[in-house]
């Protein structure tokens, strides 16, 4: 890192911790590999705590909402004990050339791969809803099914990135809520991976970061054949996703993907009505 880059990095880290960054500035910070540096933000948080006395109580209605959110996510924490879970250390995905994604997506579309929603057996999951008022958290599959049934969700269908090879039969769907900042990817046909050798990683292409800098949506492993449902773990707030992608990466995931192996793409075809 030269002096100019160091100066820019210092400026961006300071501004991130004090007044926030624009999406473009966030991309610059990521390109300088400064996204994982929490030290300025932690210093700012400590300063805030040193001069600030919390006097308010969490309102009960808000507490209930938060607890409801937590039920599902914390349960997923217990399920997702893959050794690569620590990849979430990075807040933002650095700038890198994602042109290949667009090329791959175009290739998929050119091949005329246009699977209908029914092909993915959405109803297969829907036939097995969680019991009402169950005290146990929903499984990712149940949560996926619930979101799929809700209005205003962003939904897309997975298509394989290549028409040949061991991932040529990937299918499924993805559902995402801008409002709740959560979503699920349901995938079929992904080959089992050796977690010691590789991992799958999900990416979100959306409005804030642009197509060149998709948001890291988390890593996952496939340990058995069949359908997997993955909670999307977006590292940044995602807005109006236009496409989702799954790549194969080294264990632990990557910050910068070389996009050498794209497993599947899910292009959002239509605008959905706003969430209630």
């Amino acid at each position: 890192m030269n002096e100019k880059e160091r100066e820019l990095l210092l400026d961006l880290l300071t501004r991130q911790a004090t007044e926030g960054l624009s999406p473009e500035e966030s991309r610059k910070l990521a390109a300088l590999e400064g996204s994982a540096d929490d030290s300025f933000d932690l210093a700012a948080a400590a300063l805030l705590l040193s001069e600030f006395e919390p006097t308010e109580q969490l309102p009960s209605h808000l507490r209930s909402k938060i607890a409801a959110d937590a039920s599902e996510i914390v349960a997923a924490n217990a399920v997702d004990k893959a050794p690569d879970a620590s990849v979430v250390a990075d807040r933002k995905t650095p700038l890198f050339a994602w042109l290949g994604w667009a090329v791959a997506a175009a290739a998929v579309l050119a091949l005329g791969i246009n699977l209908s929603m029914t092909r993915f057996g959405v109803n297969e999951v829907a036939n097995n809803p969680p019991p009402a008022a169950t005290p146990t958290p929903m499984t990712p599959a149940e949560a996926h099914d619930k979101m799929m049934a809700e209005p205003g969700m962003t939904v897309a269908k997975w298509t394989p990135a290549a028409k040949t090879g061991d991932m040529a039969n990937v299918s499924g769907d993805v559902v995402w809520s801008d409002k709740e900042q959560k979503g699920y990817a349901m995938l079929r046909g992904l080959p089992k991976n050796d977690a010691d050798a590789s991992t799958y990683q999900l990416w979100i292409f959306e409005e804030n970061q642009g197509d060149k800098t998709p948001i890291d949506g988390g890593t996952f492993n496939v340990s058995s054949d069949g359908t997997v449902v993955i909670p999307i773990d977006a590292k940044l707030a995602a807005k109006n996703p236009s496409m989702f992608a799954v790549t194969v990466e080294k264990p632990g995931g990557v910050v910068v993907s070389k996009r050498e192996k794209v497993a599947a793409l899910a292009k959002v075809e239509t605008s959905r009505p706003p969430e209630a």
């Binding site: 890192m1 160091r6 990095l9 210092l10 400026d11 880290l13 300071t14 911790a17 004090t18 590999e33 400064g34 994982a36 540096d37 929490d38 030290s39 300025f40 932690l42 210093a43 700012a44 400590a46 300063l47």
Partner: peptide
């Protein structure tokens, strides 16, 4: 910038850089 750097240093927050 300088103030935050000083606090960061006092807290022993090395960061990655």
């Amino acid at each position: 910038r300088r103030g935050l750097l000083r606090v960061r240093e006092a807290l022993g927050l090395g960061g990655i850089i």
